[in-house]
Structures are given as C-alpha cells and as structure tokens.
Amino acid sequence: MTEPFYRYLMTLRNPEDHGTVANFANNAFHDHAFPKQATDYHELSEYLELNAGYLPSMSIFDEAYAMYQEARTRS
C-alpha cells in the first residue's frame, strides 16, 4: 500500500526550519480538511489550489510532491 502524501509531508515538519517546504508542511498540519489519504497529484493539486491560502506558490507543492515520489521509489 502506498503511503499517503500527507503522511510523507508530515516528516518534513520542522518549526525551526523556515524553508518553503517545511513551512508548507507546518501549515498543512493545521489544515484539518487536508486530504490525508490522497496519493494522486491531481487530487492534491486541486484541493490546494482551491483551499490552501497558506501556500504562496503551487511550485512549493510541486517540489514536495517530487520529493514524495522520489522517496516512494526508494522504498
């Protein structure tokens, strides 16, 4: 079974790190409506485009999703 994107993203949380991906992860943690079981890029992208005012650029999501895919291929 594939690990959901949210679960991977939570491994990137770090309140001391002010990088864009860490900020995304920190903010997603507080987003109670985030699709926590999703693995599909398009489902996640659509949700974030419509609901994530905390994400200043979708390129941050693209970067995090690429990291997620890379981690999945190594598993």
Rank of each mutant, 00 (worst) to 15 (best):
E43V: 03
N23D: 10
A22N: 07
L50Y: 07
G19A: 07
G19T: 11
N26I: 00
N51C: 07
L48V: 05
D62E: 14
Q37A: 15
L48A: 08
D40E: 14
N27A: 09
S59A: 13
A33G: 05
L55F: 07
S59T: 12
F34R: 01
T39R: 11
D31L: 06
N27V: 00
S57M: 02
E46I: 08
Q37S: 12
T20A: 15
T20E: 15
L48W: 12
E46V: 07
H32S: 11
D17K: 12
I60H: 02
F24Q: 09
A38E: 15
A22L: 05
E43H: 09
M58K: 09
P35Y: 07
E49L: 13
H30A: 12
A28N: 08
Y41M: 04
A52M: 02
P35L: 04
A25V: 01
N23C: 02
L55H: 10
L48C: 03
L50N: 15
S45Q: 13
L55A: 11
F29T: 04
H30V: 02
Y54C: 03
A25P: 04
G19V: 06
A25F: 01
A25D: 04
F24S: 11
L55M: 09
L44A: 02
A28T: 08
H42V: 04
D31W: 05
A33R: 14
A33Y: 09
A28H: 01
A22W: 10
L44G: 05
H18P: 00
F34N: 03
M58P: 00
S57T: 08
G19N: 12
E43Q: 11
I60S: 03
A33T: 12
S57R: 10
E43R: 11
S45R: 14
G53M: 10
E49T: 04
Y47V: 01
N27Q: 13
Y54S: 01
D40K: 02
L55C: 09
I60M: 10
I60C: 02
P56E: 02
K36S: 12
A52L: 00
S59G: 03
S45T: 00
E46W: 00
Q37C: 02
E46P: 03
T20P: 13
E43M: 06
A52T: 01
F29P: 00
D17R: 08
E49A: 07
H18Q: 15
E46G: 06
L48F: 03
Y47K: 07
L55G: 03
Q37W: 01
N27I: 01
D17C: 07
F61L: 06
S59N: 14
L50H: 08
V21L: 06
Y47H: 02
S45I: 00
N23V: 10
E46Y: 04
S57H: 13
H30Y: 13
Y41G: 01
Q37L: 11
V21Y: 13
D40S: 14
T39D: 08
H32A: 02
E63T: 15
H32F: 03
G53V: 07
T39W: 00
